[in-house]
């Protein structure tokens, strides 16, 4: 399952142009605490978060994550999108709350 499949299945809106949508997704990590993601997320995972701050891009790059899903109708800051473009990190947004996005992704990744 790649990023594009998940974008379609979860009806996400991709906010960045340069990310790799063909990239294989190896799992998912949900967290709104950057230090927690730094400590516990694994390479190739999609990261679900409420954070819209530019620092999320540095975290995604350092951990080599497959992309970031921002939930609950939040919009990333302009600076965040600019950094995402520079680094080639995919950001997608969802109108739904974290529990629902995470729950659906769990059922999708299991099948």
């Amino acid at each position: 399952m790649n990023v594009r499949d998940i974008v379609e299945r979860l009806s996400l809106e991709v906010k960045t142009a340069k990310g790799d949508l063909q990239r294989e997704v190896r799992g998912c990590y949900i967290s709104d605490l950057l230090s927690d993601v730094m400590a516990n997320a694994r390479e190739g995972e999609l990261w679900i978060t409420l954070q819209t701050h530019p620092n999320i891009i540095a975290v995604a790059v350092l951990k080599n994550l497959a992309g970031i899903i921002i939930t609950n109708k939040r919009t990333p800051e302009e600076e965040t999108l600019k950094k995402a473009g520079d680094e080639g990190v995919t950001i997608a947004v969802s109108q739904s709350p974290t529990f629902e996005v995470g729950g659906k992704l769990y059922t999708i990744l299991q099948c």
């Binding site: 799992g27 949900i30 967290s31 995470g102 729950g103 059922t107 299991q110």
Partner: peptide, 19 residues
């Protein structure tokens, strides 16, 4: 469990989000 797995199992078991 992680937040992802905890959410996933409860969602799969039928619980839904606050709205």
């Amino acid at each position: 469990l992680s937040r992802f797995t905890a959410c996933g199992r409860l969602y799969a078991a039928g619980l839904r989000s606050c709205t």
